[in-house]
């Protein structure tokens, strides 16, 4: 019983130390003859979650159930024990197993296109929308104190325009009711 309690404290300490190390404050004196830190499954999964299984299609490494994935998770555990950062581990996986292990293409070279094209197309779409709207947009002449002019200026707060909102809806509804009944 006593030893168990001790383990918990030790485990907590290890987590704290690791968190500290991950913070990047100090590059951790990993060379100390202290026993290698215990890496929890959660820490392994947190890293594995950012990676994709290199052999199964589109399965994150933390949820993949194959033997191969178990080996990779074990590898991640060892790398974490040796004090590697997440970025280092990711880089190792990319070097060894190709860029497809990352959840999204790396931002370099050709792969920039992945990030550039959608916004560009959307912007182009917006431009087309703008031009079309300009072509279509013919505001109603502000005759009855209603309309865009009134909105923009807000100077002529003719109450009848505002109160017509509800009335308009009800009128529509009433009309519908009359028509349908």
């Amino acid at each position: 019983m006593k030893t168990r309690w001790l383990w918990h404290v030790l485990g907590l300490l290890v987590v704290l130390v690791l968190a500290w190390g991950a913070w990047g404050v100090a590059p951790a004196h990993a060379a100390d003859p202290t026993p290698t830190p215990v890496i929890t499954d959660d820490q392994v999964n947190a890293v594995a979650h950012t990676l994709y299984c290199p052999v199964c299609e589109n399965t994150p490494l933390d949820v993949c159930g194959t033997q191969a994935c178990a080996q990779w998770r074990e590898l991640i555990r060892q790398q974490l024990q040796q004090g590697w950062t997440v970025e280092q581990i990711q880089q190792y996986f990319v070097d060894n197993y190709g860029a497809r292990v990352l959840a999204a293409p790396p931002r370099e070279g050709f792969w920039w296109l992945a990030y550039v094209v959608p916004p560009a197309v959307i912007l182009a779409g917006l431009y087309i929308l703008y031009r079309t709207m300009k072509q279509w947009y013919r505001p109603r002449q502000a005759t009855a104190g209603e309309g865009e002019a009134a909105d923009a200026a807000a100077a002529s707060p003719s109450e009848n325009a505002a109160s017509s909102a509800d009335d308009d809806y009800l009128r529509r509804l009433e009309e519908e009711l009359r028509r349908r009944t």
């Binding site: 290199p54 052999v55 990319v94 070097d95 060894n96 197993y97 190709g98 860029a99 497809r100």
Partner: peptide
């Protein structure tokens, strides 16, 4: 040797 970065595998487009 290890197929670093799966270069060989992708060139041959192996399926498994």
């Amino acid at each position: 040797g290890p197929d670093k970065g799966t270069r060989w595998a992708q060139t041959f487009r192996i399926s498994g």
